[in-house]
């Protein structure tokens, strides 16, 4: 009796014990009085608890996977939302590559109505500071106009020029100038981003 009590205690301990401990108990040799009812009850209880535990671990792992997938989604979608668009010299016309970049943002913005986006327009350093502020505004406004034409609510988008004050790269060659003639996107609000239903 004393031994049985000890085995039962061990079994009960196992359900609250550590994973390694649980495995040790399950793998332990069958108790001496295997045919005993109390022993069977204890064994089934231990198995039930073990299964519950395994299930909860699986659930936790699934939740973790879902969260990871959600995190991945948010990261991926945010990367699309913040992808820059580029312009030709002294132009605010949206090139084909710029339209493609904006088209990729539209379904994400429509699927996440809580998200607002601050659009900033930038220029290269070649013009005057004053004209470049105007040109940057025209670029930001052009981008905003395109997005609203695709159904994104006007109130969710702001357009502001920073002119030539914040170059993406330093340099005085066309490669640097091209990288600086751009619109940037700063999403905010809405929490985790959800993928648009395809």
């Amino acid at each position: 009796m004393i031994r049985r009590t000890a085995v039962l205690s061990l079994a009960l301990l196992s359900v609250v014990g550590l994973d390694a401990c649980r495995r040790k108990v399950v793998q332990a040799p069958a108790p001496v009085a295997a045919g005993n009812d109390a022993q069977r009850q204890a064994d089934s209880l231990a198995a039930l608890r073990a299964k519950q535990r395994a299930d909860s671990i699986a659930a936790a792992e699934a939740a973790q996977r879902a969260a990871a997938e959600q995190g991945t989604a948010t990261t991926e979608l945010a990367a699309v939302l913040t992808q820059k668009v580029y312009f030709d010299y002294d132009q605010d016309v949206l090139r084909d590559d710029a339209r493609a970049v904006l088209d990729a943002k539209v379904p994400i913005l429509l699927a996440n109505p809580g998200v607002s986006v601050a659009i900033t327009g930038h220029t290269d350093e070649r013009g005057t500071a004053e004209y470049n502020l105007a040109l940057g505004q025209r670029r930001a406004a052009q981008v905003k106009r395109y997005l609203t034409s695709k159904g994104v609510a006007d109130a969710r988008l702001t357009a502001q020029s920073l002119g030539d004050s914040q170059p993406a790269v330093q340099g005085t060659d066309e490669s640097a100038y091209q990288q600086n003639r751009r619109a940037e996107f700063q999403p905010s609000g809405g929490g985790a981003l959800v993928r648009p239903r395809s």
Partner: peptide
């Protein structure tokens, strides 16, 4: 306000400021 504000100058009488401003429709 929203948009861009650029290049202020005073009127010769000193009473006002002329400047450039635009939001969505040019400056």
């Amino acid at each position: 306000g929203p948009g861009v504000f650029i290049s202020p100058i005073f009127t010769p009488d000193g009473g006002s400021v002329v400047y450039a401003h635009g939001v969505d429709q040019g400056v």
